[in-house]
C-alpha cells in the first residue's frame, strides 16, 4: 500500500499549486505580440500540444490511482463487516502523527535501518549508491514548473493574451500620464514661460542658488562666469536675457548648443527660482570670466526671444 501513496500526494500538490502559479504569472511582466514567426507558431503549437498531452495523461493516471485507493478503503470496510480481522488490524495501525505521515509520503525515503535493501551492489572507488525513489515533492515541483511554462507560453504567445514589452510600456505611460494630469489639476496655477516672474525674496533666491550649485556649475562656473557653457554675469545672451527667456532656455534646453532640457528634472517652480537667481548674477564680475557670447540684451520686452540660431561666440562682440 505504501508505494501507491506518492501518486495521491502528487495530485493533492499539483492542483492547488497550479492555481497559485496561474495568479503568479498574471503579475509577471510577460512578452508577446511583436515579431512572431510562422516557424515559431507551428513549432510551439506542436510542442505545447505534446506537453498538454503529457499533463493530461498524468492527470488521468492520478485520478485512476485515486479511484483505486477509494476502492481499497471500501474493500476494507466490507472485510470488516465480514470479520476478517487481519485486514482490520492493518487498517488500524495507528500511532504516527499526521506530520510524520505527511513527511514520509512527501519524501518517500527508505529509512537508514532498511538501507541495505536498496543498496546497489556495485561500488566506485568505495562509493556506493542507494536506490531511493525520487522525492515526491521534488517530482511535483518539476511538474508544476513544466505546467507553468506551458501556461506562460500559451498566455503570452500562442493565444497572445498577455501584453508584450511594448504594450506594457504604453500602458504604463498612459496610466502615468493620467495620474500626473490628475495630480496637477489639483495644484495651484502652473508657472510657464508666459506668466513667469522674477522672484526677489531672499528665501526663494537661496533655493535657486542651491539648485544652481548642484546642476549648473559644471558648465557655467561656480559664480556664473562660464566655462563649457556661456558667461551669465554679463549682459550678452545667446537665447535672450530676462526671466522669461532664461526660464524658457532652462525648461526646453538648446540641444544643438549642448544645453540640456531640465523640464524632466526640475519643477517649473524650481526653474523659476534658479532663473531668478541667475539674473541676480548680472554685473557681479567674477574672476576668469568667459568672453561674451550672443547679443546684448536690454531689458525685458514682450518680443519673442531671439532665434536660437543667432550669433555664437565666433561672431560675438568683444567687450574687454
Amino acid at each position: 500500500m505504501d508505494m501507491k501513496k506518492p501518486f495521491l500526494n502528487k495530485a493533492c500538490l499539483i492542483l492547488p499549486m497550479l492555481a497559485v502559479s496561474a495568479t503568479a504569472f498574471a503579475q509577471d511582466a510577460g512578452a508577446g505580440g511583436g515579431a512572431q514567426t510562422f516557424f515559431y507558431d507551428k513549432f510551439f503549437g506542436t510542442f505545447m500540444l505534446a506537453l498538454a498531452a503529457v499533463v493530461i495523461l498524468a492527470a488521468i493516471g492520478t485520478l485512476y490511482r485515486l479511484l483505486n485507493a477509494m476502492i481499497k478503503v471500501k474493500q476494507i470496510e466490507i472485510y470488516q463487516e465480514k470479520g476478517l480481522e487481519a485486514y482490520l488490524e492493518e487498517a488500524k495501525k495507528p500511532g504516527e502523527s499526521l506530520w510524520s505521515r505527511l513527511y514520509k509520503r512527501w519524501t518517500n525515503v527508505v529509512p537508514i535501518e532498511k538501507e541495505q535493501d536498496v543498496l546497489f551492489d556495485h561500488e566506485y572507488d568505495g562509493i556506493r549508491e542507494l536506490d531511493n525513489s525520487l522525492p515526491p515533492w521534488w517530482v511535483a515541483m518539476f511538474y508544476i514548473t513544466i505546467a507553468f511554462a506551458a501556461v506562460y507560453m500559451s498566455y503570452y504567445h500562442f493565444f497572445g493574451m498577455g501584453a508584450g514589452s511594448k504594450e506594457q510600456y504604453e500602458q504604463e505611460m498612459d496610466q502615468a500620464e493620467k495620474a500626473v494630469a490628475e495630480f496637477r489639476s489639483l495644484q495651484a496655477d502652473q508657472i510657464n514661460e508666459d506668466n513667469v516672474t522674477a522672484l526677489t525674496d531672499e528665501a526663494d533666491l537661496s533655493v535657486g542658488q542651491a539648485i544652481f550649485q548642484v546642476n549648473c556649475v559644471a558648465c557655467h562656473g561656480a559664480n556664473g562666469e562660464g566655462g563649457v557653457g556661456p558667461n551669465m554675469t554679463d549682459q550678452y545672451w545667446i537665447n535672450g536675457g530676462g526671466i522669461k527667456n532664461v526660464f524658457k532656455t532652462i525648461t526646453y534646453g538648446v540641444p544643438e548648443k549642448g544645453m540640456i532640457s531640465w523640464k524632466t528634472q526640475l519643477r517649473s517652480s524650481e526653474i523659476q527660482k534658479v532663473a531668478s537667481y541667475i539674473l541676480t548674477l548680472q554685473g557681479t564680475n567674477p574672476p576668469n570670466p568667459k568672453e561674451p557670447q550672443g547679443e546684448l540684451y536690454q531689458g525685458e520686452t514682450d518680443q519673442p526671444a531671439p532665434d536660437s540660431t543667432a550669433v555664437d561666440s565666433g561672431g560675438g562682440v568683444g567687450m574687454n
Partner: peptide
C-alpha cells in the same frame, strides 16, 4: 519577446 519568454520559462523549469 518570444526569445525572452523562452529564457524565463526554461529558467523556471
Amino acid at each position: 519577446d518570444w526569445a525572452q519568454s523562452l529564457g524565463t520559462v526554461f529558467s523556471i523549469m
